[in-house]
Amino acid sequence: MTGIVKWFNADKGFGFITPDDGSKDVFVHFSAIQNDGYKSLDEGQKVSFTIESGAKGPAAGNVTSL
């Protein structure tokens, strides 16, 4: 699925993605970002991701920028 990064705190390594389908915002951890180098996201960035079952509920996985 796709969405827009609502916010991401690079110091803490997590944030939230707002899915394009209008569903509830999804937690994203830096370890789910699939790019080389520094793993961070920018507010407003368009991303593709999967929904994984995290310890505290749904979380984004396999996050790639579009």
Rank of each mutant, 00 (worst) to 15 (best):
T2W: 06
T18G: 05
F30T: 06
F16R: 03
P19I: 05
K56W: 15
F27M: 03
L66V: 11
V63H: 01
H29Y: 06
F14I: 08
P58Q: 10
F16D: 00
H29G: 04
A32K: 09
P19T: 05
G22L: 06
F49N: 00
P58L: 13
G54V: 06
F30Q: 07
S65Q: 12
K56N: 12
L41Y: 03
D11F: 15
V28D: 00
Q45K: 05
G54L: 08
I51R: 09
F27L: 04
I17R: 00
G37V: 09
G15Q: 00
Y38D: 09
K39V: 07
G57R: 10
D21W: 07
H29K: 03
D42N: 14
T64Y: 12
G54I: 05
Y38H: 12
T18N: 05
N9F: 08
G22H: 08
G61N: 13
Q45T: 11
I51T: 06
F49T: 00
D36M: 13
P58C: 09
K46N: 07
A59S: 13
I4E: 05
G15N: 00
K12H: 09
G44V: 02
A55K: 13
Q34T: 13
F30C: 10
G44A: 05
T50S: 10
Q45S: 10
F30E: 06
V63G: 01
D20C: 15
N35H: 12
D42I: 15
F14D: 01
D25S: 06
F16G: 02
S31R: 10
G57T: 05
D36V: 11
G37P: 09
G22N: 08
A59L: 12
T18F: 06
F49A: 01
T50G: 04
E43S: 15
A32H: 07
W7P: 00
F30N: 05
V63M: 02
N9M: 06
N9S: 12
G22K: 07
W7C: 07
F27P: 03
P58R: 14
H29D: 04
A60W: 02
F14G: 01
G15P: 00
S48E: 08
G54K: 08
D25Q: 07
I4Q: 08
I4A: 06
P58W: 09
L66G: 06
F14H: 05
G22Y: 06
G22V: 03
Y38Q: 11
S53D: 12
P58H: 10
N62G: 08
D21R: 05
E52V: 15
G37S: 10
E52Q: 12
D36Y: 12
S53T: 13
A10Y: 12
V63Y: 01
A55G: 11
D21S: 07
S23P: 05
G13Y: 02
G61Y: 14
S31C: 08
A55N: 11
A60N: 01
T2R: 08
F16V: 06
S23T: 12
F14R: 02
L66P: 06
G13M: 04
L66A: 08
D21F: 07
S65I: 15
N35T: 14
I51K: 08
F30A: 09
V5M: 03
I51D: 02
V26P: 00
P19N: 04
G57A: 06
N62E: 07
T50Q: 09
A10N: 11
N9D: 11
K6T: 06
S48Y: 13
W7E: 02
M1D: 04
G3R: 00
D21M: 06
T64I: 14
S48W: 14
G15R: 00
V28F: 15
D20E: 08
V63I: 05
V28Q: 00
E43Y: 13
T2C: 08
S31W: 07
F30K: 10
V47F: 01
E43C: 15
A60S: 03
S65T: 15
T50L: 08
A10R: 14
P58I: 13
K6E: 02
T18H: 08
S31Q: 06
K56D: 08
V28R: 00
N62K: 11
S53H: 14
A10S: 12
D42Q: 14
S53K: 13
